Amino acid sequence: MSSSELKKYAIIVAGGSGSRMQAAQPKQFLPIGGEPVLMHTLRRFHAFDPTMPLVLVLPQAEVKTWQGLCGDYSFTLPHQVVVGGTSRFQSVKNGLAALDQEQDGVVAVHDGVRPFVDNAILQAAYNKAFAQGTAVVAVSLKDSIRRVRGGSSKAVDRSAYRLVQTPQCFRLPLLRRAYAQPESPLFTDDASVVERFGHKIHLVEGSFKNIKLTTPEDLLLAEAFLQQEKNQPSAEPLKK
């Protein structure tokens, strides 16, 4: 079986608040380019593979808000909404439970507020996970870094470190087994869950454009990225 024949899935986790964004509503619902961030994110995956099942994990309190937004913006892209848990671990676990329990495939877990993942990154991540079981998108550091201990700091080699992004892709049976483990405070992302399960994590080159919208300054970048894409007629149009 080739990577193109293996079923692809995506779990989009959108449980953030608007605290660091200094917004009155959750950041995944804030508008960029005239519509909520989350709609842009879902559309990226649908444009990559229109047959891919999309599972959107939301807090219980935000489900009605999302349904209302879908009506307001005539957003009809197929996706399944699942209620998240009290932690990211529980939310991803709930998303996994919504997928076909008997099938193999590759599943991507992605932040709902990363709306600029592109086809090249998605293709590389799904292919790597198909071949080696895991594929975590990451980028090199651009700035110098220092390790702080107590009252002193020391320069360290930035080439030995990576900034982790999403999507994080895994063979579906592997991720299911990994998420059968008891939850641990050490689980900061899906890669840490799978690594604790004893599986090696493989990295895929990401992009500095694949930002996670967290602060008000990120919204300015997002609008600039959308304008840049709009001004590139050669770019493949996203499907609505």
Rank of each mutant, 00 (worst) to 15 (best):
R162W: 01
V109P: 07
Q67V: 04
E205P: 01
L226E: 11
R44S: 15
E5T: 10
Q228Y: 06
H202L: 10
G34L: 07
Q60T: 12
S152F: 09
Q132A: 02
Q67Y: 05
K128P: 03
Y179C: 01
Q103C: 05
N94R: 15
I121Y: 00
L186I: 02
T215C: 07
G85K: 09
E223T: 09
H40T: 12
V136A: 07
F45S: 14
P233H: 15
R171Q: 15
K240H: 13
P173V: 07
P167A: 09
V136P: 03
H110M: 11
T65R: 10
M52L: 13
A23L: 11
V136T: 12
D111T: 07
Y179F: 15
K93A: 03
G151W: 05
P36M: 14
V107E: 11
K8V: 06
I201H: 06
Q123L: 09
C70M: 08
I32F: 13
F225Q: 10
T41H: 14
P26A: 14
T51W: 04
D72C: 04
V193D: 10
F208V: 08
Q123W: 03
D157K: 09
Q181K: 03
S184A: 03
D100K: 01
Q103W: 02
H202I: 06
F48G: 13
S159Y: 06
R146M: 03
P53D: 07
E223W: 05
E236L: 12
D143L: 10
D72R: 14
L69V: 06
L99W: 13
S74C: 05
A108R: 02
V82D: 12
F187W: 04
L213S: 04
F116E: 00
H199L: 06
R176P: 08
D157A: 10
P167Y: 11
A124Q: 10
C169F: 05
V113Q: 04
V82H: 09
G71E: 12
V106L: 08
Q25A: 11
H110N: 09
D111S: 13
S140I: 00
P78T: 08
S74N: 12
V81S: 05
Y161T: 02
Q168R: 01
A97I: 01
A235E: 12
Q123S: 11
Q80Y: 00
P59D: 11
S192K: 12
G84Q: 07
L141D: 04
F29N: 02
D190T: 08
C70K: 14
R114V: 08
A235H: 12
K154A: 07
G105Q: 05
L42G: 14
R176V: 07
L38W: 14
E102N: 13
V82G: 11
K239H: 13
L203N: 01
Q227L: 12
Q168D: 00
L54N: 02
P50G: 10
P173M: 08
K154Q: 11
V139C: 06
T86I: 10
A97N: 00
D111E: 14
L69T: 06
A120G: 00
E229P: 03
P233K: 15
G133N: 03
S184D: 03
L203Y: 15
V107W: 11
Q60N: 12
D72E: 14
L6V: 14
G150T: 13
S184L: 02
I211Q: 09
E229R: 14
L58A: 08
S144H: 02
G112I: 06
C70R: 15
V194Q: 03
